[in-house]
Design a protein around this nucleic acid. Structure first.
Lengths: 295, 295
DNA sequence: TAATAAACATCTAATATTTCGATGGAACGG
DNA sequence: CCGTTCCATCGAAATATTAGATGTTTATTA
């Protein structure tokens, strides 16, 4: 019982005529006969009585009219829904902790007001997991904070080099030192993100190149906690600028002038090359391109 | 958007796999690909994301799942309804007034109790109209009370020769006369059915053969009224026995012994040769065959 | 790391279905 | 009685669907 036949049936029932239905639908009359017969065969009953020159709905025909209208209404509703709700959708965005915090505070409210029918699920994940999540289509887009990625399986929608600095409380003994070397501070208590986090790995690798190693006194993913810990306990961390900008402006933290360790870290908005770019996806990406990453 | 594809879609969505759906449905895998693609093309959107070895429903895919289930449920409901309600139906029966009265009082209650889901529309019509009603499929079956009909366009399901008699009040001066001739009573006041009624026409024609004519003092279709009028006013009528049987038994009416006018009238249950014999139709006809016409 | 397997896409050829046009019969209207 | 209308039917043509073979990608396993 295919939809095409039901539509034909509806027309025939309304017009009371095979011939007129054929004209209205742009079919030949024999096609209408065939389609109705097909329905009748499939349902095992007569739908129209053909007596003299008039067709009349049988009991079953009447019931089919009602059913067919229901199906048609449902179909039309559905197509309308599809057409209308193009901008509606769910997005699953996965980022490192620090990016999540920043994005939510800086942009979520505005984005939500502009696109209230895009539902966002924001979760945080280890840098190492982010790409796997794309591979398994568990995340729609990710934002990495890691070394610069280039891989033909993924599309980098936007990227930006992020300055990173050693930071300490503005009361730190290193606060006003110029021309520090990494060796000057390596013995100090460090608070760093966990190893899984992208820039932590970059950091460790850079150190390893110089045959150095740091065992942090505290490892924790939450960068807001890192900053408060180093302020209160006079410790040192190594963080991307966007995490510390505000506290530095407020005079609570300061950059250390370490001259022999310049690490390039990248913030990249990435999705899988086979990802279907729904309207929501496009909207989100476009939004990020114009609003985010501009600091 | 044909049902076949929706069914396929449902299976794919449930199993999360084209290949498994193919096995379950007995299609080849390429067919599944094709069908899903067909839906996607028609709806202008992606239904499944294909990333690595997994398919995932898109937003629109999710919506289609819900819609497709609704359509499937509706379809199944409908088919069930068709299968179950085979004995349900409407019947339009048209008869002359006198037959209507008799059938309703004698059989309707019983029939209804036996087949409560057969809805009957009982209407009365002129004998001349009855066959036209079959032709236009405005009546499902008719019962005629007329001369004997034989016509290849109609099916006579049951027929019976009906005795007709001149009747008068049992106090009539002719009540006990033996061997009356039509000429003895032709001057009396007659109450007859209208000319349209079958047996009235037969009666008039018979008279015409004898170059006689009757102008009734009252013409009326309702035979219950005829009998009461002739009883109260000492008049004469010409009616089929089944109309008068009861009143004769009660001693209120009597047959007149008119020996030179024997009219054959037939009661026939007729439907159109192209009529679809629904279960209700068959049931009704079968019922009539066993219960009615047996007097 | 290479071989194998699994999953979906694509192409082509076979198959099935749908459609049309022509024809026919039956019934209606003038 | 003839022309017209309406639906049924038939065969041919057009179209759509399906299967099978093959390709690509990815995951698994040895």
């Amino acid at each position: 019982m295919e939809l095409r036949n039901l539509i034909t049936f509806i027309h025939v029932a309304e017009l009371g005529s095979f011939t007129k239905a054929a004209e209205q639908l742009g079919y030949s009359q024999s096609t209408i006969s065939f389609q109705i017969k097909q329905l009748e065969d499939e349902l095992g009953c007569l739908l129209f009585e053909r007596i003299n020159h008039t067709i009349t709905l049988t009991e079953q025909g009447h019931e089919l009219v009602s059913y067919a209208h229901q199906v048609r209404a449902l179909t039309e509703d559905f197509k309308e829904t599809l057409a209308k709700e193009d901008l509606r959708g769910h997005l699953h965005i996965v980022t490192p902790d620090s990016v999540c915090e920043e994005m939510i505070s800086a942009h979520y409210g505005d984005f939500h007001r502009k696109y209230p029918s895009i539902y966002i699920r924001f979760s945080t994940g280890d840098s190492g997991n982010l790409l796997h999540m794309l591979d398994r289509n568990e995340a729609d887009v990710i934002i990495t904070l890691d070394h610069h990625l280039y891989n033909k399986d993924y599309v980098v929608a936007k990227e930006q080099k992020i300055p990173m600095h050693f930071v300490a409380s503005s009361e730190s003994k290193f606060a006003h030192c110029k021309g520090l070397s990494i060796k000057d501070i390596i013995g100090e208590p460090f608070v760093l993100t966990e190893y899984g986090q992208g820039y932590r790995r970059v950091f460790d690798r850079e150190l390893a190149k110089k045959s150095l190693e740091i065992t942090p006194v505290l490892e924790i993913g939450r960068t807001d906690i890192i900053t408060s810990v180093i302020m209160e306990n006079d410790m040192i961390s190594f963080l991307p600028d966007f995490v510390t900008d505000e506290l530095i402006t407020e005079g609570k933290l300061c950059h250390l002038d370490v001259v022999d360790m310049n690490i390039d870290i990248w913030k990249q908005l990435i999705y899988h090359k086979n990802k279907w770019l729904s309207k929501s996806m496009k909207t989100f990406i476009e939004y990020i391109k114009t609003h985010e990453f501009t600091n």
